[in-house]
Design a protein around this nucleic acid. Structure first.
Lengths: 208, 208
DNA sequence: TTCGTCATGTAATGGGTTACATGATTAC
DNA sequence: GTAATCATGTAACCCATTACATGACGAA
């Protein structure tokens, strides 16, 4: 009853965006696709059912701004349904942002998790980044191995594709390494700053 | 009942690999994931049903090599089921490789189509490459627009993600442009070679 | 008044995964 | 003889898409 399966990436994305500001579905989708446009695009056919489900789960509520403008009020056939997070929703979001597992570093989920890193605990951020990096490195290794095995007898297009893929992933690995470096530096600074306390518990770096 | 819906990308990938050489399922999957490892990975749960469907469609057949080695023959409990293309299968493959449409340049399909470019007509190759490039350019533009619109009030992680995405896509666009250039040069050479024929009707066979 | 965009939804479908179940072959 | 890997399959489920249907609103 409690921790049912959510709508995957979408749930997190929706909760995350709604946390920043209440919105209606149409706008939500635009922001969604602007945010993740490079990686994926969602359609209404998945968004609205997701919103519905979040509603019935009590994670969001419809928030109709109740125009004080009486003139408009009478013919306010509802269009625009603005959604906002409930307390439960915020809690759920926090929970989703705290679990650093495959879901957060695999291809589908990484982008979304990363997009909301500013609401994520520093140690979780680090583990996600490292998780993704080692995932990509595994992939590199296995593809490189396969490439070496079939060195001969590959046509040029296949080779071209492999190489481009390889380079793309290598590039992402470098990017991740850079980010990891920054994160670690920040953590050390943090630790340094609070070195007057016991140096082993450094829990509080809430959000920016 | 001729041209029903196939198993998406998998169908093409399987037909393409089997065209190069007959194989059994397990090996097929390995080659598949070696070939496309950077982009996607298939599981047996999708591969075997796909093979089954291709069998019943008559596009592939089981090819049990019937060992002439009599000593082994008696205890040849079948493991390894080797599949190979039928004539229909080759035709179907050719058909799949000839259609240059969204399916061939959208994210899911592009890699697979590209991987078998050496079996693809030159003009189709060009149209697919151009299709993908313009698709990516659309994406770039829309994301850049969104980025410009929300210039302020973006947190640094989101910005970082957007930028990385942008650069990745820009990189792919450059790669595509390079390939397109090569393809065009090749086509011109080809045209040049046959310039002894009517020299005036060659300027633009790249319709569209 | 009509067209394009904003806005909300649903039903059918689809392509694929996970987890499971089973057995053969190889290496130690 | 036992563990790892090779090898084949199935059933249940999942997340999301496509295509469809509806209607409000602003601008031409």
């Amino acid at each position: 009853m409690a921790g049912k399966k959510g709508a995957g990436v979408l749930e997190l994305a929706v909760l995350g965006l709604l946390h920043e500001s209440p919105m209606h579905g149409y706008e939500l989708r635009k922001r969604l696709n602007a945010l993740l446009g490079m990686f994926r695009a969602f359609s209404y056919g998945s968004l609205y059912p997701c919103l519905k489900q979040l509603l019935t789960s009590g994670l969001i509520v419809e928030d109709r701004p109740e125009e004080p403008n009486v003139a408009l009020a009478l013919q306010s056939r509802r269009s625009k349904i603005v959604y906002k997070l409930t307390a439960d929703g915020k809690e759920r979001l926090q929970q989703l942002l705290t679990e650093a597992g495959p879901a957060s570093w695999e291809d589908e989920g990484f982008g979304v998790h990363f997009a909301f890193f500013s609401h994520t605990r520093a140690d979780v951020r680090l583990r996600i980044l490292e998780g993704r990096r080692s995932r990509l490195e595994e992939r590199l290794e296995s593809v490189r191995a396969a490439l070496a095995r079939t060195r001969e007898r590959v046509d040029s297009y296949t080779l071209e594709l492999q190489n481009h893929g390889l380079e793309s992933v290598e590039r992402e690995v470098r990017w991740l390494s850079e980010l990891i470096g920054r994160e670690r530096a920040e953590q050390e600074q943090q630790a340094h700053r609070s070195s007057s306390l016991t140096s082993q518990d450094m829990p509080r770096e809430t959000d920016r």
